[in-house]
Design a protein around this nucleic acid. Structure first.
Lengths: 207, 207
DNA sequence: TGTACATCAGTGAACGCGCGTTCACTGATGTAC
DNA sequence: TGTACATCAGTGAACGCGCGTTCACTGATGTAC
């Protein structure tokens, strides 16, 4: 499936440099953060000259943007699949939340890049994806105010916000290692369990 | 109260450089992240030569470490005060959570620096403070396993974890601007409300 | 099937930049008498 | 109260480093005939 990132030493062309750069950038972001992604380091890893990336990306920023958009697409796919396995709308929303936590654990590189403020700022499509996700939650648990950039807090229910904060917080805690090493399966179980705790409260809190 | 960061142009000594550097570093971390804190930039802002910081800190890292430890101390103080205004242990824990969210909004610079993995790694006292906070929560809502570095997840209750994730998530969402501009008061109200949603569920979930 | 040529994806040397840090120095301040 | 001196907290010039990026180049590949 995944071929070597490093180019064959006897060949002139790498053959796969664009994808290899994105993959390596994702790996660095996963282990050392987005700021630590640097082109010279990546090219060194793959045995290619430091000018090579510029055949594929206008600059460092364009590389990160491509990673972010790929990550968003991957997540949307997985979240959609997870939701489609449920019929009850609340369970669908929950499944999306669990998929989110799972994605953070399985793909911390994508997660970090696609949540980076500087990168988000540059991509209307990423911002839009975030709003769509929020709206999906609001539609189920609270008042629906489609696609407002600066959400009117007063119009969102405590339940919606609590669900979002819980999921986001769990994802970040896992990613930042605050809970030690946790497998993707355990993370998903955890997300299921914690959203369950919330569920008890939601029944009382939602209108 | 807070005197100018910039040195008086006619004087040789700044008089307050150590504190001014820490304050400026905190401000940069708040607006552009920890990685964006750079000594030359700080010295430029305060009209001082780029070698000056080394009279007060061994290196850049030591400056950030000092900021982190000051931040932790400030937070502990505020959390303690907030808790001491409540008598019920659960409400004390809740007050600490609200203080945490409030601190993230009021002092995002401190918050960012003291949560930075590279910095935490270097300070036993920061790690210890984190464990104490976690234990304080566990003691109230779940099983108490004092001071384990890698917490045995199975021994923590879903309620404890949900509370921690919710608080952490809300703090980060506010800090990252995911909820727009929110005042410290609104943030505290929000934290109160959301932990309330959780409270309903906790009653069912705690043993 | 073989050759000519355009295009593509690399090379390697060089650039300017901003950074953290060091160094020998000097002006300002505090203390002893 | 005034002077001598140690110490403190700055200066400014310089360093090496690693980075992103550019440039003229060249080897490899694909296509037309």
């Amino acid at each position: 499936m995944k071929r070597s990132l490093r180019k064959k030493p006897d060949s002139y062309h790498h053959g796969n440099l664009r994808a290899a750069l994105m993959e390596a950038a994702t790996a660095v972001a996963a282990s050392h953060g987005v700021e630590a992604v640097n082109l010279r380091d990546l090219t060194r890893r793959m045995g290619v000259s430091s000018a090579a990336p510029f055949r594929h990306f206008a600059d460092r920023n364009a590389l990160l943007l491509a990673v972010a958009e790929e990550g968003v697409a991957k997540f949307q796919l997985r979240a959609g699949e997870a939701a489609s396995r449920e019929s009850d709308p609340v369970e669908q929303a929950r499944a999306r939340g669990i998929a989110y936590v799972r994605f953070a654990v399985e793909e911390p590189g994508y997660f970090r890049v696609m949540h980076h403020p500087e990168i988000i700022k540059q991509s209307a499509s990423i911002v839009a994806a975030g709003l769509r996700n929020r709206d999906a939650l609001d539609r189920v648990l609270g008042v629906h105010q489609p696609g407002q950039a600066s959400p009117d807090l007063a119009r969102r229910t405590a339940g919606t916000l609590a669900a979002q904060a819980l999921t986001y917080g769990l994802a970040r805690m896992l990613m930042d290692g605050l809970l030690g090493d946790v497998s993707a399966e355990d993370a998903a179980r955890l997300a299921h369990e914690l959203t369950g705790v919330l569920g008890e409260g939601l029944r009382g809190a939602t209108p």
